[in-house]
Write a protein that binds this DNA or RNA. Structure first.
Lengths: 136, 136
DNA sequence: ACATTTAACTTTTAAAATGCAAGTTAAATT
DNA sequence: AATTTAACTTGCATTTTAAAAGTTAAATGT
């Protein structure tokens, strides 16, 4: 996606403004999915060619990294980069929005409670957990 | 867009997971654009048929409302609903993300500073300003 | 009052993206 | 050595997007 404008919101959408990219980031962020097949098996069932092209774009955009699994060279390990980790507050606010406007979904109640009571702490905790993974 | 899963993030993307919808919300939220032609003239220049279909979907999803301008019956007035206003924290976090990872864009520095120093106050202020508009 | 302009769309059509199924390749397992 | 697994790629039909032109009703200008 070419840059459409100098707007910071538009800029984020240039990276993740589609139906799938943020779900990949979600899976890397909250569900410890790191393999292609893990990502393919999320509830939304994204097509393999789309997954492939989104991973390629996210990597090109510097939001995720890809490396060969040293224990099994067939496998690739996908991870969030620091820029990808920093998408966390956006995802948290999406969860909060749904908890307010679509409460019948599978809302992670505990996370939402923490987001309300100690938002900065929650982000700190999750960020350091994710950042720790980067050095393994 | 049909519901893809029970995930709260996926749910938000079912509403605004495309390149354009959040830009419409941005324009209603930050730039006081309320007419079709205003929205059409944003920097990203969305095609008129796309704008039309997005407005229709956003209205159907309960994020915006549409009414005839009483002063000029050719005009329609588009506004955010409370659910639309509640997207504000998501947009703020996008702005913050770009301020950190794409600082060369047009970052609203003052807003970002406020977001860092008194996030709750910022959201409160902007929300009440937007909510006030709903009763005019 | 009549012609022109404005606002909000709709329609058309070509190009691009998506979604589905099947196929490929290299590495691990049996 | 044969089979299975993981990560893709390819082909093709369908859907969505984008760009341009056209429509309709209301307001404005003369």
């Amino acid at each position: 996606m070419p840059t459409r404008s100098q707007c910071p919101i538009s800029n984020v959408l240039d990276h993740v403004g589609d139906k799938w990219s943020l779900l990949i980031i979600r899976d890397l962020m909250f569900f410890n999915k790191h393999a292609y097949s893990d990502l393919q098996n999320s509830d939304e069932k994204m097509a393999t060619n789309i997954l492939s092209s989104r991973l390629e774009k996210l990597e090109g955009d510097g939001l995720i990294s890809k490396r060969v699994d040293p224990n099994d060279k067939r496998k690739k390990v996908y991870r969030l980069t620091p820029a990808g980790v920093d998408m966390l507050p956006i995802l948290i606010e999406m969860i909060v929005w749904s908890s307010n406007h679509a409460p019948d979904l599978n809302i992670p109640t505990e996370l939402v409670a923490k987001a309300r009571s100690d938002r900065a702490g929650l982000i700190q905790d999750l960020t350091s957990r994710l950042t720790a993974q980067l050095n393994t």
